[in-house]
């Protein structure tokens, strides 16, 4: 499985966190947000993670434009931490690109990976 890190903030930290949790189970690559979204569109990667300060703009803007909102979900916003039920719901709905705020980075990545790997 391959996860691309797009978004516009704290990319290095997201990639580090993914490696820390998933180890060799996933391949991680940090990309420019436009390229990351295109990689998903071409089927060369499975999931897109991205962060910014609001959870949707820099984090998911390009993914929304390139993949459409049917593939994208903002799972955390300022003052709204990520919830596991919502993540499960979005994954079941076929979402592959996820945006969250840099504040909630650790919890968001942890919960996403937990449910993706299961």
């Amino acid at each position: 499985m391959k996860i691309v890190v797009g978004g516009q903030v704290d990319k290095q930290k997201i990639a580090k966190k993914i490696k820390e949790i998933a180890g060799d189970q996933v391949e991680v690559e940090i990309m420019d947000d436009i390229k990351a979204a295109n990689t998903i569109k071409q089927g060369k990667a499975d999931y897109y993670f991205g962060a910014c300060h609001t959870g949707g703009g820099g984090a998911l803007g390009m993914a929304m434009a390139i993949l459409s909102s049917t593939k994208c979900a903002t799972i955390s916003m300022p003052a709204k931490p990520p919830k596991e039920e919502k993540i499960v719901e979005e994954l079941e709905a076929g979402k592959v690109a996820f945006g969250f705020t840099s504040d909630h980075l650790e919890k968001a990545v942890t919960l996403l990976l937990k449910n993706i790997l299961n």
Partner: peptide, 11 residues
């Protein structure tokens, strides 16, 4: 203003 709202508007 909210950068997160911008991508939602075209939807």
């Amino acid at each position: 203003f909210n950068d997160s709202l911008r991508p939602v508007i075209p939807e």
